[in-house]
Design a protein around this nucleic acid. Structure first.
Length: 218
DNA sequence: AACTCGGGGCA
DNA sequence: TGCCCAGAGTT
């Protein structure tokens, strides 16, 4: 396990690799963010933005999403994977918002996770980005990168990764850290073919050194 | 813990 | 072409 200082410095270095890391979801209010994050499961932000560009003009509030047949909403987001389930979830979610929250996005984790298609990661994104409530969203990239670098343990659950990052990083940097970990994981420390040879963190990455050794000997 | 959903991206 | 994936729900 790395110290706070080591963890913070490692994540700082990631920022030097992708200084223009600005690929975020497009949204104008908490409701649009919620929809965008639900749509983003298992696909890229760029793909989601391509769809929401038109989607958010046609559907401006929860009432709009449930005013059309399910098939129409499915058709409107069909270029995204899992679109059948996601369309169902969005209509169900909008019903819940109207019935239990006056058409607004709730601001507690319990209420958010009770919505269809909203899990812990999505809830954390909405809490932190839309409402400024401290939370760290751990996706597969964040989990993989922090474990490879030894910031977290291999056997840690998503929940434990969350707790570790909240303890080791200053609250004001959580947002930036999240983006840096995402980009570092997506484009550099990739799941199958991580670019270890020219990685600025190689000297302090046990996993990277292990992989290089295996590559040269095998 | 393991499976399913699924079109896009990428080798 | 075939594999993998910026999750969540179900069993």
């Amino acid at each position: 396990m790395r110290t706070k200082k080591e963890a913070q410095d490692a994540i700082r270095v990631m920022g030097t690799l992708f200084p223009e890391a600005e690929c975020e979801l497009n949204f104008r209010n908490p409701f649009e963010l919620l929809i965008a994050v639900v749509l983003s499961a298992q696909c890229t932000d760029a793909l989601v933005n391509r769809v929401t560009k038109h989607l958010f003009e046609k559907y401006r509030d929860p009432k709009a999403y449930i005013a059309v047949p399910l098939e129409e909403l499915q058709h409107d987001i069909r270029s995204i994977g899992l679109f059948r389930n996601k369309a169902k979830n969005i209509q169900s979610l909008c019903y819940t918002l109207l019935e239990k929250h006056g058409g607004n996005v709730p601001q507690t984790r319990e209420e958010l996770e009770a919505l269809a298609g909203v899990g812990r990661k999505t809830a954390n994104v909405v809490l932190s980005v839309a409402f400024g409530i401290p939370a760290i969203a751990v996706d597969t990239h964040v989990e993989r990168v922090t474990k490879r670098l030894g910031i977290c343990r291999w056997k840690d659950t998503v929940r434990q990764v969350e707790d570790t990052l909240m303890k080791k990083l200053e609250k004001e940097t959580w947002g930036d850290a999240h983006h840096r970990l995402i980009f570092f994981g997506r484009y550099h420390c990739k799941a199958q073919s991580p670019r270890c040879p020219n990685c600025p963190l190689l000297d302090r990455c046990r996993e990277g050194q292990k992989r290089l050794k295996k590559q040269t000997t095998g």
